[in-house]
């Protein structure tokens, strides 16, 4: 049986992979996908804690699953708005490469 540490390690590694992707990729859509990976890694941590720390009546804690439910819903809304912004950006600049978007550089 897998222990709590194994779940936390796996979710931490997924978070680290997502963070690395945000830092090293230059395509803004892929940066966005890596953000989703990081959100999901946090969800895995929440679910693992919910299952490993049972409530006083011996079932998985439903409150942390509520938090995951809200995170997933907000992430869906965020993706919709973010992709609309990317489409608007592409229309204005004909690029989604972050190196080419330097008009706010000081």
């Amino acid at each position: 049986m897998a222990t709590l540490h194994q779940y936390l390690l796996v979710s931490g590694l997924l978070f680290a992979i997502g963070l690395a992707g945000v830092v090293l990729r230059r395509n803004i859509i892929i940066v966005f996908m890596c953000l989703e990976l990081m959100l999901s890694a946090a969800n895995l941590t929440l679910i693992a804690f919910s299952r490993f720390n049972l409530t006083s009546y011996g079932l998985p804690d439903p409150n942390s699953q509520m938090l995951v439910f809200f995170v997933i819903t907000v992430a869906a809304a965020e993706v919709a708005v973010g992709l609309a912004i990317i489409v608007a950006l592409y229309r204005a600049r004909q690029t989604i490469h972050t190196d080419d978007l330097t008009s706010m550089r000081g």
Partner: peptide
Amino acid sequence: GLFIGLNAYFTGIIQILVY
């Protein structure tokens, strides 16, 4: 799959459907 293994069946299905 990990979610379903952790007895969070609803969240696992939602993960597949939404993401």
